[in-house]
């Protein structure tokens, strides 16, 4: 009987551990997302235990002025102003707080080179509410991002 209980425990533990590694609720944030203006696509990935989002696609990748790829020309760090905007890590340092919320992160607005505090709330599996704010969440603005379907590797 003791062996039976032990086996059951081992089985359940193994099952739960497997399930957890596959279905960590925090990892639901991973994927490619599009802001409401449809002008960019952002891939959210995990580095360590935190989540970061990089611009992977721009609707208008070239600067109409120069005819060259858009640069991060408003970056407060002057040495990075000639770096391409595509690939810029605009979401940084998000940790999963629970209740479908990722907090303590920042969002960068390439239009003005400003970085805002940010909260990400997952409304459903394919919808994020991203609120950038200054100081307190009241002084902020929410945008809705939608998940893009990434095809499976052939």
């Amino acid at each position: 009987m003791r062996r039976f209980l032990l086996a059951t425990f081992v089985f359940l533990a193994s099952f739960l551990l497997t399930a957890k590694s596959l279905n960590d609720p925090a990892d639901r944030l991973l994927g490619v997302w599009e802001p409401s203006n449809g002008r960019a696509r952002v891939k959210i990935e995990k580095i360590g235990t935190k989540y970061y989002g990089k611009i992977v696609w721009l609707k208008e990748p070239t600067d109409p002025e120069t005819g060259k790829p858009k640069l991060d020309k408003n970056n407060p760090d002057e040495s990075l102003r000639n770096a391409p905007l595509k690939g810029y890590r605009m979401l940084k340092d998000f940790t999963y707080k629970g209740d479908d919320e990722w907090t303590e992160g920042t969002i960068y607005d390439p239009n003005n080179g400003s970085t805002y505090s940010c909260i990400i709330k997952m409304k459903d599996a394919n919808t994020l509410e991203i609120r950038g704010y200054i100081g307190i969440a009241t002084f902020g603005r929410t945008d809705v991002w939608k998940r893009l379907q990434v095809p499976a590797k052939p």
């Binding site: 994927g31 490619v32 599009e34 802001p35 409401s36 449809g38 696509r41 459903d124 599996a125 394919n126 919808t127 809705v144 991002w145 939608k146 998940r147 893009l148 379907q149 990434v150 095809p151």
Partner: peptide, 9 residues
């Protein structure tokens, strides 16, 4: 890429 669910209005 296409939207996984409903697209953004």
């Amino acid at each position: 890429l296409s939207f996984a669910g409903d697209g953004n209005k």
